[in-house]
């Protein structure tokens, strides 16, 4: 509410659409699933910790997929892990989003050629909304990815059906 602080006197009225309010509410508190796979998870931890402080964007980590809005796939997805990721994604309540962090989750990264046990991109098992490149991406890049996701949510219409 920082933007609206002390802008109005004695309780004014805001006129907006239900969709906008819903989208604003959802994008302002994106809870991410605490789910680290590999190197990128360390950068994800650093993003959530003291120096970068992801909490100020309304994002903090929940341990259960059922309480999370966004799944940050941070790291290399192996074939053994892929079915578990699918399960976790299925356990999340809708609307749900997936942010693929790092080259491995995007396309296999350095393991694209000889990685017989690496899934070449998490988008082969679950749909991805935002891709963040880098190996690993800096915390700033992860934040940028989350901001992009917020832009996407802002444009979403849940109640009003979009006219083709």
């Amino acid at each position: 509410m920082g933007l609206l602080n002390q802008r109005f006197e004695n309780g004014n009225v805001l006129l907006t659409s239900v969709d906008d309010v819903l989208a604003w509410g959802r994008l302002s508190s994106l809870w991410a699933m605490q789910f680290g796979l590999a190197c990128c998870a360390i950068e994800m931890m650093a993003t959530g910790a003291s120096h970068y402080d992801l909490d100020r964007f309304g994002t903090f980590f929940r341990s259960s997929p059922r309480q999370a809005d966004v799944m940050i796939v941070a790291g290399t997805v192996t074939l053994k892990m892929a079915s578990r990721i699918k399960t976790l994604y299925d356990q999340m309540a809708e609307p749900r989003y997936v942010l693929s962090m790092g080259s491995c989750a995007n396309c296999g990264g350095p393991y694209w050629e000889h990685g017989y046990h690496v899934l070449k991109g998490v988008d082969r098992v679950i749909p991805v909304d935002v891709y963040v490149p880098g190996c690993p991406p800096r915390p700033e890049a992860l934040m940028e990815g989350l901001l992009k996701l917020k832009e996407k949510i802002r444009k979403e219409r849940l109640i009003l059906k979009q006219t083709a």
């Binding site: 290399t76 000889h114 046990h117």
Partner: peptide, 14 residues
């Protein structure tokens, strides 16, 4: 274990 087996030996061979 093995959920993060990233085939390093194979890569180093190649």
């Amino acid at each position: 274990i093995g959920y993060l087996h990233r085939c390093f030996e194979k890569h180093c061979e190649h």
